[in-house]
Design a protein around this nucleic acid. Sequence first.
DNA 1: TAAGAAAACTGGACCACGGTCCGTTTCGCT
DNA 2: AGCGAAACGGACCGTGGTCCAGTTTTCTTA
Lengths: 228, 228
Amino acid sequence: MSDSLPILPEPQWRAGEHQLLELGTGPGVATGAGADEPCLRADAARNRARLLEAAARLVEQFGAAGVTMEAVAAAAQVGKGTVFRRFGDRTGLLMALLDHSERKLQAAFLTGPPPLGPGAPPVERLRAFGVAVLRRAVDELELQLAAEGEPDRRFASAPRMVLSAHVGMLLRQAIPGADCELLAKTLMGYLDPALIHHLTKQCGMAPARLEAGWIDLVDRITGGAPSH
Amino acid sequence: MSDSLPILPEPQWRAGEHQLLELGTGPGVATGAGADEPCLRADAARNRARLLEAAARLVEQFGAAGVTMEAVAAAAQVGKGTVFRRFGDRTGLLMALLDHSERKLQAAFLTGPPPLGPGAPPVERLRAFGVAVLRRAVDELELQLAAEGEPDRRFASAPRMVLSAHVGMLLRQAIPGADCELLAKTLMGYLDPALIHHLTKQCGMAPARLEAGWIDLVDRITGGAPSH
DNA sequence: TAAGAAAACTGGACCACGGTCCGTTTCGCT
DNA sequence: AGCGAAACGGACCGTGGTCCAGTTTTCTTA
């Protein structure tokens, strides 16, 4: 009975998608639509590119709501099944669309210049981190919102976990005695796209106030730890 | 052309649903399936009760995923359109299902005994509040998760806003100078059902640690404000 | 380098579910 | 009883997601 099922279709979407920390290869950020797909058949890679391009076109034309799996497939002249095979589900496609700026952010705080990157004291890096995420959010808000899938996958997504781990690391440096894992989740909660959307778009709060709120929050949580 | 549309279907689902603070009528908590629908036609009220009962049955039988609008309608011997007319959408139905415990919680911290209710110092009330929400979450986790609809409605839902407002009020008492609205959202983020699910079910974190984390968080944010 | 086989990919038919619409029925009031 | 408003119910639609038969690519072997 074990030979009838062909070893599971093997979810190979996720190959090359939002990987966690694989950016020790080159000096800077990937230059956009370069060669970043390691092991993908020629036609598959081609179709993947066409799908992403089509999806991006749909986004800027009709907004995130216009990114329908069938529409993307049609626009890319590809079968619907192909879209799902490549990206798993709608959420996966949207996340792939966000992947580029995601990596840019990761590179910035992992290997970039201070105060975001290494070199500055942790509390200062924390402050810069939040501001960077907030600024990035105001651009891609719609996409980021649409990319939030089921509630239980929100926190399990690779990009979110990278950010959370980074915050946790900085917190451990700033306040070694605390439960930094939990505090990191709290800080990340402040940067939830849905919250940002709610506060800026529905409550009409100015982004500057959000940034100030982040600074204040970091200071409170780190309890006036030495910032330099 | 203006007489053809009957003045808008008038979204009267929400009548009697998760209202904000209407609980000054009785001494204690509503006794379950009592008379809490003010203005609803007889057949409508009857069907509403049948629908809720059917939905609850489905939840305990197949879990929240089993609460399909068609299944609920069928189980209640009612047309599908009726379900939508009454509850607006799936989210509305799930929220109605949670309404009861929601009101119990609200009553507890609004008019109940200290330390949750009025009478205790604000910081202490904050601590008790978080613990209460965390404890409630471990029961209804699945339902609460399922009831989270679109990301942009998460923060706009009436129950969530009530809790947030309450936390904000306590914070204003504890730390008058701060941006308490923002800090309240942060604290509420810690109590996000999706986060609780992630930490307890996916990361295997013990609820006790979450509760301790809440206490710590409150203390950090209120900056050692007098707790008595 | 050519041929053959296995693995991987493709694409569209198919399904389930959320949500809408509108003709029909029931209720509550006078 | 009669009337208008409200509620009912199920046909209908769009979309996310699955499945599998057929095709293409790549690997192996000669």
